[in-house]
Write a protein that binds this DNA or RNA. Structure first.
Lengths: 174, 174
DNA sequence: CTGAGTTACTTTAGGCCTAATCTATTCAGG
DNA sequence: CCTGAATAGATTAGGCCTAAAGTAACTCAG
């Protein structure tokens, strides 16, 4: 839980120039779908980068660990490894790599699954619940803050449209 | 440029269950901003994962390499390392790690910058241009295909709204 | 002209992620 | 009951990404 460190000038982050990102170079003859995709990617990266940096600075943790704890928070009875894999949309091997250090830190625990000796259930420990509750509150404030400039009306509009986009993409994908 | 390999049953990708992703567990009392962010993330990951997999299978390359070549394609005179860093929104050290293998593969070249002996210009080679032209055509088809289910009207609507979102996020961020 | 500060790029350590492969367990058909 | 296929999870090799620190070159005030 280290405090934010003031950034020195020679380490200044040059990656936020509003006039120079992936999208800026898109050409007028690019297909609309392509430009939409690039813009979607830019928006996601803007928020994701900020959240990652803040999680690291304020809570000395990472986004994947936060995400995993977030899922466990919503399922107090715990989740199996492959369920976590599906929820977080990452491969199983990766889940092992995220759960291991969290378990070592005492934030989650593996409890045996009586019905299947291959599997077990991952749950937040008491310490994990306490730590997550604090982080989640702050995290939500960050998101609200980052999107505060967006009027409520457009807020729900994007949400609805992205819902449709999610659906058609899932149907089209592989 | 290997061909796609039919996936064996026991390696089936279990990560695309439409009823079980990060978002599904969002609770009704979550703030609207948080739910919007989760949905944005899901949409991006759906497309990104698909594109990464296809780039690997069809062209035996990666998304970061494709993205970097894409920027060079749009700037035939070449870009300096720190310009690439800004365009792709990643750190400088990372650019080194992406350019190195591309240079080794003969797809890009580093040419000295006469005015500044610390810097140089990275450009596509002839082979790089040829390879990229082919990949870009296919890549664009993929994106169009993945978003094909979205009516033109909503297409431009999301594009506009995300533009606004990008703007307010950039103003709010750090 | 000199030296402090800045900039361009690289390197390093560490974490995330994937695909592929491995072990142990479970399951289903004969 | 056996045996082959499928599943749960771990492991490995390799690539991406970051922050931080290192090197070399540039800039400019004194």
């Amino acid at each position: 839980m280290q405090q934010p460190v003031p950034r020195q000038a020679h380490l200044r982050d040059t990656r936020r120039d509003p006039h120079l990102d992936r999208e800026t170079a898109s050409r007028t003859d690019d297909h609309h779908a392509l430009r939409l995709w690039l813009r979607l990617l830019t928006c996601t990266q803007l928020i994701e980068r900020e959240v990652r940096a803040r999680l690291r600075q304020r809570f000395d943790t990472t986004l994947p660990r936060f995400d995993l704890m977030s899922q466990l928070w919503r399922y107090p009875e715990g989740l199996k490894m492959n369920e976590l894999s599906r929820h977080l949309m990452v491969t199983g091997g990766n889940i092992t790599g995220i759960v291991d250090p969290l378990e070592k830190a005492g934030l989650v625990e593996r409890t045996p699954e009586p019905a299947d000796r291959r599997a077990y259930r991952v749950r937040l420990t008491r310490a994990g619940r306490k730590a997550f509750a604090e982080m989640a509150r702050t995290h939500e404030e960050w998101i609200v803050e980052l999107l505060a400039g967006l009027p409520r009306r457009e807020h729900t509009e994007i949400y609805k449209l992205l819902g449709k986009m999610k659906q058609v993409t899932m149907e089209a994908g592989s």
